[in-house]
Simulated assay, not measured.
Amino acid sequence: MPERPTAGWRHHLEEQRAQRRAGTLKEGEDWALEAYPDSLIAATDTALADFEQVLTRTDPESDTAVLGAVQHVVLALNAANANHSDAAYDTDEREALCDYIDQALVGAGVDTDALTARQGLERWEITDRWRTW
């Protein structure tokens, strides 16, 4: 599986927490501390871990099964976003999550180009019908 976006979020948090403890972080530069609350990281990690597990049991050639897995993870991420005032995932986070979903599908043996073509979608649109973030 690809590295989850939350790994990078945790890295930014740890870096800024260390800088804060050292007194080297200037006021207003602690963007990660606000952008990535522990509750958001936990909810996102749970959704992605569930997705990873579902993919291990999903037939990569079944459009219905694959799209069901995508729908499930997107709805879980919608809930995480909603629990954080519908402002949890900015552009960078949205792109990272969509890229993660795509890479996880490819890693599970899904031909995403063929799947999306059969669905009349562009590859980057695979999450769009359910995504609110």
Rank of each mutant, 00 (worst) to 15 (best):
L67E: 07
A49W: 02
P5R: 03
P60C: 13
R123M: 07
A43Q: 04
V73T: 08
L55W: 01
E93P: 00
M1C: 09
D111V: 08
L75K: 11
L33T: 05
E125N: 06
P60L: 09
N78W: 06
Q103P: 02
T24I: 11
R4M: 09
G120Q: 06
D90A: 15
V54Y: 07
I126M: 13
G23M: 05
Y36A: 01
L48A: 01
D102H: 15
A69H: 02
D50A: 12
Y36E: 03
H72D: 14
I101M: 05
G109Y: 04
I126R: 12
A108M: 06
D102F: 13
V110G: 03
D30G: 09
R21W: 00
L55I: 01
L97W: 06
S62H: 10
Y36I: 05
V66K: 03
D90W: 14
A108N: 07
A114L: 13
W31C: 04
P37L: 06
G109D: 03
D59M: 08
S85H: 14
A87E: 12
H84P: 03
A108Q: 03
G109P: 01
I101N: 02
E29W: 15
A32L: 02
D45Q: 02
E95A: 13
A76T: 03
T46R: 15
C98L: 12
T6Y: 03
L25Y: 04
N78C: 07
A49M: 08
W124M: 13
P60V: 08
A96S: 14
D38Y: 10
W130R: 01
A65F: 07
A104I: 06
L55T: 00
T91M: 12
P37W: 03
L121K: 01
A22G: 09
R57V: 05
A82H: 13
T44S: 09
V74D: 01
T116K: 04
R118K: 14
D128I: 01
D111Y: 08
A18H: 11
D102E: 15
E122Y: 15
V66C: 02
N81I: 01
Y100F: 14
N78T: 08
D92K: 09
D90P: 10
E95K: 15
E14Q: 14
T58G: 04
H11E: 15
V54C: 07
L115N: 03
A7L: 13
R118P: 06
R20C: 07
Q53M: 06
T24F: 08
T6C: 09
V110Q: 00
T56Q: 11
W31G: 07
D128G: 12
Q53C: 01
T116G: 09
P2A: 06
A79N: 13
F51H: 05
S39C: 11
H72R: 14
E34R: 12
R131V: 07
E52G: 08
G23K: 04
